[in-house]
């Protein structure tokens, strides 16, 4: 065995192993398993969308077809079609791609910014902490949706702008959590040990502190993912989401809700789709928390 296998491998190589193991632990939480199952289902749907979807998402085939029935040319529509004749099932399937692309992307971006801010505020303290915390307080004092509307109304609505808006609005919240964890962890003796051997602040923040904050952060990330999905849905619903015609669950609900009186299927199915995915993340977060509390 060499030094390399002794240190970095045991730190990072085993990390993968341990991550797998903790997913194994998930088996002990039924709630967490259901959540993971729902998420996995949508991930598979998103990946294989071109194979699963019976029709192209934007093809106008036959309007106002009810679920479980056939159109004028004998096409079968499991969930029916909307008022301009697009297959609802196909649009839901393709729409999962949009959600599962932008939600994790936005969450990840928010985490990168939030963690950087939180580490700086919590570990370096002093002026940096004061300034970052004040900025965070101000951003957080906006009602979230007001902030999104203001940002999107100003910079326009597009996928990337949604990611930017979510990052901007969520990073301070993540910063608060990270800062709190860092304030606790920085007083540990192993951090003092690292300091007494003259480690750089980078090393201490990234090696000694951050990895040990991962537990609560993973749970928070799951919850936040659920919330980001809601946000993307709400923006779509308010007409501030991705520009049409590409399918987006929130947008689908907005487009069809005036038809809801006569054709509830147009709105109800996308509602179920988005709710099930959010439920998946919330259940997973709950399961993970339950497991982490038990150890």
């Amino acid at each position: 065995m060499t030094d390399r296998s002794l240190i970095p491998a045991s730190t990072y190589g085993n990390a993968l192993l341990r991550a797998l193991k903790s997913f194994g632990l998930l088996r002990e939480s039924i709630v967490g398993m259901i959540g993971a199952g729902l998420i996995l289902f949508w991930i598979i749907v998103a990946i294989f969308a071109p194979l699963i979807a019976p029709y192209p998402p934007n093809a106008t085939i036959a309007p106002f077809v009810m679920p479980w029935s056939t159109g004028p040319d004998g096409e079968f529509f499991l969930l029916g079609t909307d008022m301009i004749g697009r297959d609802i099932l196909s649009r839901i399937i393709w729409g999962s791609r949009t959600v599962l692309l932008y939600a994790p992307l936005a969450t990840l971006a928010a985490y990168v910014v939030g963690i950087a801010m939180g580490l700086a505020a919590g570990y370096l303290r002093g002026r940096a902490d004061d300034i970052l915390s004040r900025i965070g307080d101000i951003i957080l004092s906006f009602p979230v949706l007001v902030l999104y509307i203001l940002i999107i109304a100003t910079i326009g609505s597009s996928g990337i702008n949604i990611v930017i808006a979510i990052t901007f609005a969520s990073a301070p919240g993540i910063m608060r959590i990270v800062r709190g964890l860092v304030l606790d962890l920085r007083n540990r003796d192993y951090v003092a040990a690292a300091q007494t051997r003259g480690e750089s602040s980078w090393h201490i923040m990234l090696v000694e502190i951050l990895p040990n904050a991962r537990g609560p952060l993973i749970v928070d990330a799951c919850l936040r993912l659920g919330y980001v999905i809601i946000t993307i849905g709400v923006l779509g619903f308010l007409g501030l989401g991705l520009p049409p015609p590409d399918p987006d669950w929130g947008g689908m609900i907005n487009e069809t809700r005036s038809m809801a009186l006569a054709f509830p299927h147009m709105t109800v199915f996308p509602c179920i789709a988005i709710s099930s995915l959010i439920l998946g993340f919330n259940l997973l977060a709950d399961g993970l928390r339950e497991i982490s509390l038990r150890d």
């Binding site: 709630v31 659920g226 809601i230 849905g233 709400v234 619903f237 929130g250 609900i253 907005n254 809700r257 809801a260 009186l261 509830p264 709105t267 109800v268 509602c271 179920i272 988005i274 709710s275 959010i278 439920l279 919330n282 259940l283 709950d286």
Partner: peptide
Amino acid sequence: SIVTTSVPEFASAVLITAVLVF
């Protein structure tokens, strides 16, 4: 409580309206 928090407002608005109104 976990299920109800998972249904966004616009979705529950649709579902409740469908049931109670229509």
